[in-house]
Design a binder for these strands. Structure first.
Length: 653
RNA sequence: GCCGAUGUAGCUCAAGUGGUAGAGCAGCUCACUCGUAAUGAGCAGGUUACCGGUUCGAGUCCGGUCGUCGGCUCCA
């Protein structure tokens, strides 16, 4: 007999069982309902690992069919646990593959993992292409498999045996070769066999609800030199309600799409005549200018000096900077009077020319040049995506020229600025990533050591949690990036701080030191919002278009109930406008209902309703997008409320 | 760039197997003067993305180009 301690959530119990029993058998002995609820188990500790496989893969999550043959402590994972949903999604990928195999017997399967919000499976079909219309057919087949409640049966085989089983599947053969352990595990579901480390749900019937979502191409192993496979995405859940909730959320995210809102609210547009180059409309420019005005104020307070450098610069400059070598395929070029020029993809060489235009003393440092620089980068046609991925955009850039001794202080100040500005825009949640030297780079290893250490020291000193991305730095220096989390839980890399010892060397820039000798300054490249255009897209989606009053292109609209109240309404409108509020006057001959509906669709924060009562009492009534209505209040009172909300950049109205 | 889908009026969408393009909303005109998410009627609006082919005849079938959408790859 062996002792097994079984934990489930906060309860734990120890029982003695015969060696060789499975977890499921053990659970049935303890409690049938628990056995019913259980999805997988976690081995918290055990006397010895059962198989060589477990030792090499360090798997702590196991199937319920896992055999216990020594004293152990196990934790039962039920459908409430996030990891159970992950397993469910993975199992559902197998179920989908099983269905596809039945419909298209020649399909060769590659990989089918669970992902953040569901699962996918990549496979190769030679003759046929699968389209959206085929998904319901596959779904029907899957439903049949789920109804039959097939078991997920795990089996461990030698690599030779596995190669025999998957002899017709080049993808699996490649995967088997890469597994280090002498044995591999395979799972059988119905008549579908897959190479897989598991764990899986006990049987297909555990899938309460699922939906196949989309179909796409994906390169084998994510390498564009490899074959393009067919990928089907789906999502599965333990209950129909969870699926419906997921679909509702997906619908909400779709309705928050900045491309749709941008068009509906007349903020910006795209045209076939300029793919990837955004056009900003009057309302979009209002939003853009508000962001820029705020940005300027914050930067002036921090001692930045704003500059502006040209969009077209000699190709020689880009050869000196190293951009031509590293990025010529993504740059635009023009030939003027038989000389080659490039449209700038970055602002740094321009800033360096400004620096070089005069001598500098150590007394001036740190010298902080800020620039809202319009850059152009050629993006491949397939990657364009609204304002998120464009071919021309405005970086809220700055280049700080300083002494090495000032680095940490300057980096700290940037981090504080980023933190302050993000909060104002309503982003309270972000994380930091540190990217180190890439393979393709300029500068010496000594420079890179210094630069990487400086960044890391500051992040550590500030006690910020960060992850390291090895080899992901810019070609001229390492960087720390700030990733904003929006209200949908998506993350967006916006701010970046890049440390650069290389460009000052390449451009031979210097300052006169206290010692009356020439020294080389260090450069910090940094952005806070990243791309103004992209940031606008992020803001729109974060707020689903319901921008807080300080950002809203139209803050209020005056709605007279009928033309009879036109004169008084006009005076209210004039007063608001005279006080610098962005207000519109809807004096169309339409019903109040219609005017309110239109104002709602335009996502205007305040609707000012004026009828007989308001005219008589010389008041206004406010219908707010957020919060209760304010009936018959003094115009002055509303002005002070609006002033407070706008000046203090409050997120609610 | 690659895989797949797609392109019809400003917007959202119709037009069995090829037979001279329709609707709602928006716009304009008229009537209604309205109390918290669409008042009614009328009018106007399209070389069906573009180029070529098949056909007596193409929005529809075929080829190409461009854009867009979902992914993959990429993102200084």
């Amino acid at each position: 007999m062996i002792k097994v301690k079984v934990k489930v959530e906060e309860v734990s119990t120890t029982i003695e069982v015969e060696k060789g029993k499975t977890i499921l058998e053990l659970l049935l002995a303890i409690s049938k309902p628990l056995a019913q609820k259980a999805i997988i188990a976690e081995i918290v500790s055990s006397g010895n690992s059962q198989t060589q496989l477990d030792r090499t893969q360090l798997v702590s999550l196991v199937d319920l069919s896992h055999v216990i043959d020594s004293d152990s402590e196990i934790r039962i994972i039920t459908s409430e646990d996030e990891r159970a949903l992950d397993t469910l999604n993975h199992s559902c990928a197998h179920i989908m593959a099983c269905a596809i195999k039945k419909i298209y017997p020649d399909a060769k399967f590659a990989i089918g993992p669970s992902i953040r919000n569901g699962f996918y499976y990549d496979f190769d079909i030679d003759e046929k292409t699968i389209s959206q219309e085929d998904l319901p057919v596959i779904e029907e087949e899957m439903k049949g498999i789920i109804e039959k409640d097939y078991k997920f049966e795990r089996q461990e085989v030698t690599k030779a045996e596995a190669k025999e089983i998957f002899r017709n599947n080049p993808f699996k053969l490649e995967l088997i070769d890469e597994i280090e352990s002498p044995k591999v595990s395979i799972y059988t579901t119905g008549n579908f066999v897959d190479l897989c480390s598991g764990p899986h749900i006990p049987s297909t019937g555990k899938v309460g609800a699922f939906k196949l979502l989309s179909i796409a191409g994906a390169y084998w192993r994510g390498d564009e030199r490899n074959k393009m496979l067919t990928r089907i995405y789906g999502a599965s859940f333990f209950s129909e309600e969870d699926l419906q909730l997921y679909l509702e959320r997906a619908e909400k995210a779709k309705n928050s799409d900045h491309r749709k809102i941008g068009k509906d609210l007349e903020l910006f547009s795209f045209h076939d005549e300029a793919p990837g180059f955004p056009f900003f409309h009057p309302r979009g420019i209002i939003l853009r200018n508000i962001i820029i005005d705020y940005w300027r104020k914050e930067h002036q307070k921090e001692g930045y000096l704003e500059i502006q450098t040209p969009v077209i610069l000699s190709n020689e400059l880009w050869k000196t900077s190293g951009h031509w070598d590293n990025y010529k395929d993504n740059m635009y070029f023009v030939n003027i009077e038989e000389k080659d020029y490039a449209i700038k993809p970055m602002n740094c060489p321009g800033a360096i020319l400004v620096y070089k235009s005069s001598q500098h003393s150590y007394r001036e440092l740190p010298l902080k040049y800020a620039e809202l620089g319009l850059v152009h980068r050629h993006e491949k046609s397939g990657v364009l995506h609204g304002l998120f991925r464009v071919r021309s955009f405005t970086q809220d850039d700055a280049h700080i020229f300083c002494m090495e001794s000032q680095l940490k202080d300057e980096i700290t100040k940037i981090i504080d600025l980023v933190d302050r500005m993000y909060r104002v825009f309503g982003f309270h949640d972000y994380h930091v990533e540190l990217s180190t030297r890439p393979l393709k780079r300029i500068g010496t290893d000594k420079m890179w050591d210094k630069a990487e250490n400086a960044l890391e020291e500051v992040v550590k000193a500030k006690d910020i949690n960060y992850v390291i991305n090895k080899g992901e730095g810019a070609f001229y220096g390492p960087k720390i990036d700030f990733h904003i989390t929006d209200c949908f839980g998506r993350t967006w890399q916006c701010a970046t701080i890049q440390l650069d010892f290389a460009m000052p060397e390449k451009f031979d820039i210097e300052y006169m030191g206290e010692d009356n000798a020439k020294h080389r300054p260090v450069m910090l490249h940094r952005v806070v919002l990243g791309s103004i255009e992209r940031f606008i897209g992020i803001l729109i989606e974060h707020y689903s278009g319901n921008l807080p009053p300080w950002l809203a292109p139209v803050q209020a609209v005056v709605l007279p109930i009928s033309e009879k109240f036109g004169d008084y309404s006009r005076r209210v409108f004039d007063t608001l406008r005279a006080n610098n509020f962005r207000v519109e006057f809807d004096n169309r001959v339409e019903s109040l209902n219609k005017k309110i509906r239109d104002a709602e669709l335009k996502k205007i924060p305040y609707m000012i309703v004026i009828g007989k009562r308001e005219e008589e009492t010389r008041t206004i009534t406010i219908r707010r997008k957020v919060g209760e209505d304010m009936r018959e209040i003094e115009l002055d009172k509303f002005l002070s409320i609006l002033k407070d909300v706008v000046e203090n950049k409050k997120s609610t109205s």
